[in-house]
Amino acid sequence: MAGAPGAAGQASPEQLAPEQPQQGFLARFLADDQKCQLMLLKTLQTNPYVKLLLDAMKRSGCAVNRERHFSCEDCNGNVSGGFDASVSQIVLCQNNIRNQAHMNRVVTHELIHTFDHCRAHVDWFTNVRHLACSEIRAANLSGDCSLVNEIFRLRFGLKQHHQTCVRDRAILSILAVRNVSKEVAEKAVDEVFESCFNDHEPFGRIPHNKTYAKYAHRDFQNRHRYYSNI
């Protein structure tokens, strides 16, 4: 994945139902790197999932800098992005990220890995259960498994579908970045699923859409204002 052997990443989330790029007139004439940088900037400034994660990272002593911690690159295969723990950098696959909504999901997904890297001693390189836990959290909290995304994938309507989607996405992500068998990936995910699925930090809840994410961000800010006044 983009030359990042230690990356925790996600496979392209719309393999079953490709979308047409929804970019502005000017963006059609820009190079991939320029389009990637413009979409990244908009995501960092406007997306409620990302704004909450950036606040949480800053409060945890791991402030994120756009120039230092993000890199737009061409990637092999259909991977959309990854977190390279060896250099604490998020790789954005400019040749595979198709539109602003896709950028929003990729940045959110990878920032959850970055948050986990900041707050915990995650062994990305040798402990597949650690990787599985972060992939479960990223799939659960980033919007990867939202109803809209699952409809685009032509997968919806099953009992406990959100949990099933999170499990499947976590397994796919492990297989995209680790040379392990599907059986090993499934075993790692199943062993940590319950505890990691129920770990909603820093959101405090599963943010099923942007409205939920905005409420979660408001509650996060109010929670810290309350503690600072005690």
Score class of each variant (00 low, 15 high):
M1G: 08
G6S: 13
G6Q: 09
A7H: 06
G9M: 04
A11N: 14
S12K: 11
S12I: 05
L16N: 14
A17K: 10
E19Q: 14
Q20I: 08
P21F: 04
Q22H: 06
Q22V: 08
Q22E: 11
F29T: 08
A31E: 09
K35F: 03
C36S: 05
Q37P: 04
Q37R: 15
L38D: 06
M39H: 04
M39F: 02
K42D: 08
K42P: 01
Q45P: 02
T46W: 11
L52F: 07
L53K: 14
L54E: 01
A56I: 00
K58M: 10
K58P: 03
R59G: 06
S60C: 09
A63I: 06
V64S: 09
E67S: 13
H69P: 00
G77A: 07
G77K: 01
N78T: 15
G82N: 08
L92C: 01
Q94M: 10
I97Y: 10
R98S: 13
V106K: 11
V107W: 06
T108Y: 10
E110W: 12
H117M: 13
C118K: 06
H121T: 13
H121E: 14
V122P: 09
V122M: 12
T126C: 06
V128D: 04
H130Q: 05
S134P: 01
E135N: 09
I136W: 03
R137G: 01
N140R: 15
S142R: 06
G143S: 10
D144L: 07
C145S: 12
C145L: 05
S146C: 00
S146N: 05
L147I: 09
V148Q: 14
E150F: 08
E150M: 12
R153E: 01
L154Y: 12
R155M: 04
R155N: 12
G157I: 01
L158E: 13
L158Q: 15
H162I: 02
T164C: 07
T164S: 11
R169Q: 08
I171V: 01
I174H: 03
I174G: 02
R178Q: 02
R178E: 01
R178D: 03
N179A: 07
S181Y: 00
E183V: 10
E183G: 08
V184N: 10
A185G: 03
E186N: 12
E186G: 07
D190R: 15
V192D: 07
V192C: 05
F193I: 01
F193E: 03
E194N: 15
E194L: 15
C196V: 00
F197K: 05
N198M: 07
D199R: 13
H200L: 12
P202L: 04
R205N: 07
R205V: 06
I206T: 07
P207W: 05
P207G: 05
H208Q: 11
H208G: 06
N209V: 02
Y212W: 12
A216E: 00
H217F: 09
D219H: 13
D219L: 13
Q221S: 09
R223C: 06
R223I: 00
S228C: 07
I230A: 14
I230Q: 15
I230M: 14
